[in-house]
Design a protein around this nucleic acid. Sequence first.
DNA 1: GTAGGTGTATTATTATATTAATACACCAAT
DNA 2: ATTGGTGTATTAATATAATAATACACCTAC
Lengths: 132, 132
Amino acid sequence: MTSNLINLFSLNVSSGIPIYRQLIDQIKQAIRMNLLNEGEQLPSVRNLASALQVNPMTISKAFTQLEIEGVLIRKRGVGMLVAEQQNTSISKQLESSLIQFIQTARKQNLSDDEINTIVQQYLSLHSKGKSQ
Amino acid sequence: MTSNLINLFSLNVSSGIPIYRQLIDQIKQAIRMNLLNEGEQLPSVRNLASALQVNPMTISKAFTQLEIEGVLIRKRGVGMLVAEQQNTSISKQLESSLIQFIQTARKQNLSDDEINTIVQQYLSLHSKGKSQ
DNA sequence: GTAGGTGTATTATTATATTAATACACCAAT
DNA sequence: ATTGGTGTATTAATATAATAATACACCTAC
């Protein structure tokens, strides 16, 4: 049942990126790619923990964060479900703003590396992690 | 001399944001606003440390990071100078399209890593000379 | 209510990041 | 070479974040 869903996720313990954050990103990614759809149930905390060889609380931490962000819905005693995704419409918006940016950058003869650098600089400049 | 430059910076020790990072951001901001210009010398580590009531090494850490990023130039025995700014001169149009994109992405709760990934995906997907 | 599944609050442990103390290296001018 | 300025490598102390252990609470089906 859920075992094939487990294959969506793969953790890199020695990457320096916290496990719970890798999981958060991968779940979001899976939802964005429609590998996980609205109403679908995620693998249980214990299943995931066992399959990925980490502590259940680490999984739970990721789930909790995703519930706070409105990505998942917590059903106690049942499991975590994928929430309604407002993203589809916003995704178009995101895509169009990205294309707009890349086209502008290309018109100025910026290389891909330069574009990446600029994005990274702005991300760190405009503070990360916490809202500002 | 440099004392008025010191007034550019103000730290919030209880904000949760690391001191050295606050300083990094504020120095970059000052450069972007032309309050600090190319070749200009920053207040010394000890001056800043004393004025801002923090350890000199904390200031030095910020300086080192900015040197790595190419924002400042280290002159040993002399001081830190503002480097030539290549990135500040990107066009307003490019900047605004980038900000637009990042804001949209952040509204979707995308992490910095995810944003970078998406940009890279689009760059290779829509790369100039290549098919696919 | 019991059994067997779900997630989690609390606490402790461990790892990492941040800050600070100290002693040192570099440079320019004398 | 000495003085007085610059930044920093190394180390230690501290604060914060991430992970894990345990015991618990919730829900459904029986």
